[in-house]
C-alpha cells in the first residue's frame, strides 16, 4: 500500500523578476515546471506550473534561481477524505 503524503509542495513565482534562464525548469527533480508562452514586462518568458501536484516543496528551484523569482516550500496537506 502506498504511503499517504503528509506534505504538499507549493511553488511561488514572481514573474516580473524572471529573466527566462530556464534553470528552474531544467533542474526541477520532479519536472513540475515549464516555460510559459507569455512574456513579462521586460519581455522574458517565465516559468509556470505544469504539474503542481508533483511538487515536493524541495526549493531547489529557489536555490538555483539567479533572479530570486521563484521558490518553493512544503505545506501540510489538508485532509482529503
Amino acid at each position: 500500500m502506498q504511503r499517504k503524503r503528509r506534505f504538499e509542495g507549493v511553488v511561488m513565482i514572481t514573474q516580473e523578476r524572471c529573466k527566462g534562464c530556464t534553470v528552474c525548469v531544467e533542474f526541477c527533480p520532479v519536472h513540475v515546471l515549464s516555460m510559459s508562452d507569455a512574456f513579462n514586462q521586460k519581455g522574458y518568458h517565465f516559468p509556470e506550473l505544469k504539474d503542481p501536484e508533483k511538487c515536493s516543496g524541495c526549493d531547489l528551484c529557489g536555490m538555483y534561481c539567479p533572479d530570486f523569482a521563484i521558490y518553493a516550500f512544503k505545506r501540510e496537506m489538508k485532509e482529503a477524505s
Binding site: C21, K42, C65, P66, D67
Partner: peptide
C-alpha cells in the same frame, strides 16, 4: 531586478 544577466550564477 539586479544587473546580473539571465542565467548568471552569482544570484544562485
Amino acid at each position: 531586478p539586479h544587473i546580473w544577466c539571465p542565467g548568471c550564477g552569482i544570484g544562485t
